[in-house]
Design a protein around this nucleic acid. Sequence first.
DNA 1: GTCGCTGCAAACAGTTTGCAGAGCT
DNA 2: AGCTCTGCAAACTGTTTGCAGCGAC
Lengths: 148, 148
Amino acid sequence: MDRFEDLCDQLQKNDYKLTNQRKNVIKAFIMHADSHLSAEDIYGIVKQKHPEIGLATVYRTLELLAELEILHKLDFGDGRLRYEFANQKTHHHHHLICTDCAKVIEFEDDMLDSLEQVIHEKNGFQILNHHLKFYGICQACQKEKTRV
Amino acid sequence: MDRFEDLCDQLQKNDYKLTNQRKNVIKAFIMHADSHLSAEDIYGIVKQKHPEIGLATVYRTLELLAELEILHKLDFGDGRLRYEFANQKTHHHHHLICTDCAKVIEFEDDMLDSLEQVIHEKNGFQILNHHLKFYGICQACQKEKTRV
DNA sequence: GTCGCTGCAAACAGTTTGCAGAGCT
DNA sequence: AGCTCTGCAAACTGTTTGCAGCGAC
């Protein structure tokens, strides 16, 4: 079973109707699985083939998919929420954001597990999630700068 | 020299005028130095004694103080920017956010330094800054839950 | 006196919501 | 057929901006 059918099943299993709009939003995500799309991005992509979709529907669908934990909300501080597939390794998955070209690079690391343990011991805080973002300059932009 | 005078000096040294509104915003921050205030928070505090201040001025002043690196912007994902004093240890200073009561606890750690080193080696990414937030349930809210 | 700063109100951007009609099951 | 879902437009929220007058230096 491919990813698309799997996600459609998840919707139906939870008693949500499988409308064309929802299918198209899911397809757009699968087509751009490595991106971090915003509502407006999705709207633009789906609109090309299905101009009748409404932006509000996109927002409602994204909210739904996030609630089902199919998608994760991301906030890169650019004033709009972005989304990515929520897969198993999400907890150890962080983002490097280039402040020059806004490119986002993914990064895997589980060092935070031990840090969470320390925090739990020191503060009695029960940690459920964390967000770690690095801001800096990617390799391409560094080269760009030395060249000029 | 106390903190207030020091900050006023910093403004003047940079050719910014020392207006009453700016002084009052700075005072409000000093009075609540351990909080993470939003523009609206500051507006409310200053307005009590100086009802003539405008919200736009607060926004402009916060922007100015952030540019001078007197304040740091924080984004706890609640839809508004918050600010705290930018001091020397900021880079190793993170936040634990309780998803129940929204309380924010400060946390110090420098483990990320070595992680930044690893990232630099693996990705050639020159890291300038990072944001690390932990979401979970604080000790008080955990007790609250077991009691009911 | 000059020019930066302020208050006000209007503009803005992303997101949410009310409602009447469309469409999945 | 029933009730969820949709498109549209209007409302909302935090923030920014244009402008005429005010005030720090």
